[in-house]
Amino acid sequence: MKNIGDQPGLPSKIGYYLFLGIGAFISVFPFYWMFVIASNPRGAASTLPPTVTISDQFMSNFTRATGMMDFWTALGNSLFVSTAVTLSVLFFCSLAGYAFAKYDFPYKHFLFFFVLCTLFVPQQLSILPTYVIMTKLEWINTFKALIVPAMVNAFGIFWMRQYIATSVHAELLEAGRIDGAGHLRIFTTVVVPIITPALATLGIFTFMNIWNDFFWPLVILKDRSNYTIQIALQQLFTTRDGLDYGMIMSATFMATLPLLLVFLGFSRWFIAGLTSGAVKS
């Protein structure tokens, strides 16, 4: 049953694993090498033959990095913005998804179709006027400019609608209604507990996207003290000649580590979300 194709011999088995292994090596090696460069003396990125072993200079490299950037402030800024957006996206997208999945109202199908259409509008098309709006609101250089436009998005609504439509049964909602619970109360006590897995996936994805975002923070943030971690890292990379890669890699490593740990801890949710999202669209 499980066999696809003939039972292959040992040589082709070795071939399979060699190919998959090289793929895995290429995927992981840059992470390892990031730490290698971060833990070696500053010129290690350009030695011949290349340095591939970990050394003990990490703290001295990282101290140089924190001398040039407000690393912990930037990390805190990223954490704050990403958390605020994630919480808001989870709330508004699940409410809207719930409405599209379980309520009947005029123009529902048209409105949902409209939501889907907005998925295909490139961000760059609206960046200039949005920038002008932010100037008018005097939100340039504030976190509000990063958080407010991202508070709810079409993908999240689509994702939550698909999940709620299949997993929340009408009888449960009916029962809640007969018990006299209000709309919001039914949502929080009946719907939310059922859709926790979908919330987890959407939350991780949103957090990651905002954490990694570069273009919009680059446009909005002007002050060092407000930089998110991505902008702060880019600012470290200033001069072409005599780049201190040990210092840069130590900060890059420290900035990548939190997300890597979150991913390794929750990889099941990531990959589940990724695959079902692709299947449904």
Partner: peptide
Amino acid sequence: FRVLYFMPNITSIVAVTLVFSA
């Protein structure tokens, strides 16, 4: 294998670019 292959995608583009710049 799936987890290993997916690791690059969670890394920020800035981090990827800096590592490959080195």
